[in-house]
């Protein structure tokens, strides 16, 4: 009898822990990988330089993934964020090169991000075209525009309008590149924290407040989970959908500024090519449901870090870079399976 009761208590605990794990699967996937990294190559992995590098490298994906989280919570998906990043990043560099003013450049970039996002949002919300189709279309359109504009080549920061590579003004370029290439709290013994990490974390906090503590944020979740019920509750669902894409566009634009500043140039063919799938993967690892209505900013944050730590660990261990993709793919599928097991839900997709 006592044994029986004890088993029951154990069962309860087990279930509660499972539910907690399920809600925070991304955090635990991340911790698991982190511990694995420490065990396997702790001496290299744990060095501050390495940790900061992981975060710096993933800050841009991290920022884009914040926008992607909104789109996915709304029950959609965006395939165009990479091409959009190339397009608005190009605009940012062109404006900077012409005006030598980083504020104008950023303004133009963010405006372009919002406008392209609005365009996608209107097509999805008002014309009822599935977001997969819309963004498949805009992805090719955006990429094609950049390729045409730069005739398939690239553009460096600091080249005056009409100039060539030799005309590059390094001093001017530095103003722009400092956006990403300065470290905060740098001292003689400490390398400091690269600014992209600060941007990423600040935007995470903002987006967390927006999604969890504002009325509009709740409207996004309600619309993504049950559009009809949301509409009948007085929520302007079309506006919410358009807003979701617009914010995603703004995030992509901020990511574009950070990326172009880090690299100091844009490549019409290569910039942002891998960003679409990385951002989606991070959001999915973070526990969002592709059916909409579910997703967390903290989940997305750890989703990005999980992918980042994974890639870093593989690199430290000297695994052939061509195999990294396979490992990332496994982690996405594994994380989702883990999540389902933990929270015990079966989801129809």
């Amino acid at each position: 009898m006592l044994d029986h009761a004890l088993t029951k208590v154990r069962n309860i605990r087990g279930k509660d822990i499972m539910r907690f794990l399920g809600n925070n699967a991304a955090l635990f996937a991340f911790l698991l990988l982190f511990i694995m990294a420490i065990i396997l190559r702790g001496e290299i992995f744990l060095q501050p330089v390495n940790i900061l590098n992981i975060m710096r490298h993933n800050a841009i994906i991290g920022i884009i993934a914040l926008g992607m989280t909104l789109v996915i919570v709304l029950g959609g998906v965006s395939l165009s964020v990479g091409a959009q990043l190339a397009l608005v990043g190009w605009i940012s560099i062109e404006v900077f090169n012409a005006t030598r003013n980083i504020f104008l450049a950023m303004l133009a970039c963010v405006a372009a991000g919002i406008i392209t996002g609005l365009l996608e949002g209107v097509l999805v919300a008002k014309f009822k075209v599935p977001s997969f189709i819309v963004t498949l279309g805009t992805m090719t359109i955006f990429r094609s525009i950049v390729l045409y504009g730069l005739t398939g080549g690239g553009l460096m920061v600091g080249i005056p309008p009409g100039g060539v590579g030799a005309d590059r003004d390094v001093e001017v370029a530095r103003i722009y590149q400092n956006i990403s290439n300065v470290n905060l709290f740098q001292t003689d013994d400490f390398i400091g924290i690269p600014l992209p990490i600060i941007y990423w974390i600040a935007l995470c906090v903002l987006m967390y407040l927006f999604t969890s503590h504002t009325a509009t944020g709740r409207h996004i979740f309600a619309t993504g989970s049950n559009e009809k019920a949301a509409k009948l509750s007085g929520i302007k669902v079309d506006k919410i959908r358009i807003l979701g894409f617009a914010i995603c566009g703004a995030m992509v634009a901020l990511g574009a500024v950070v990326e172009t500043a880090r690299v100091g140039a844009i490549s019409s063919a290569a910039t942002g090519v891998e960003h679409n799938l990385d951002a989606i993967a991070a959001v999915v690892i973070g526990g969002a449901s592709m059916a909409g209505g579910k997703g967390r900013i903290s989940g997305t944050f750890f989703g990005v870090l999980t992918l980042g730590v994974m890639t870093n660990l593989l690199a430290i261990m000297g695994v052939d870079p061509f195999l990294h993709g396979a490992a990332r793919g496994l982690i996405v599928i594994g994380a989702v399976l883990l999540q389902r097991r933990l929270d015990g839900t079966k989801e129809a997709t």
Binding site: A215, R218, H219, F221, A222, G224, S225, N226, K228, A229, A230, L232, S233, G234, I235, S289, G293, K294
Partner: peptide, 19 residues
């Protein structure tokens, strides 16, 4: 179908129109 939003908690559902 029309009343509750299944992914949201009780409080969020109750306050959806007045949030």
């Amino acid at each position: 179908e029309n009343g509750i939003v299944k992914d949201l908690n009780i409080a969020t559902n109750m306050t959806l129109s007045v949030v």
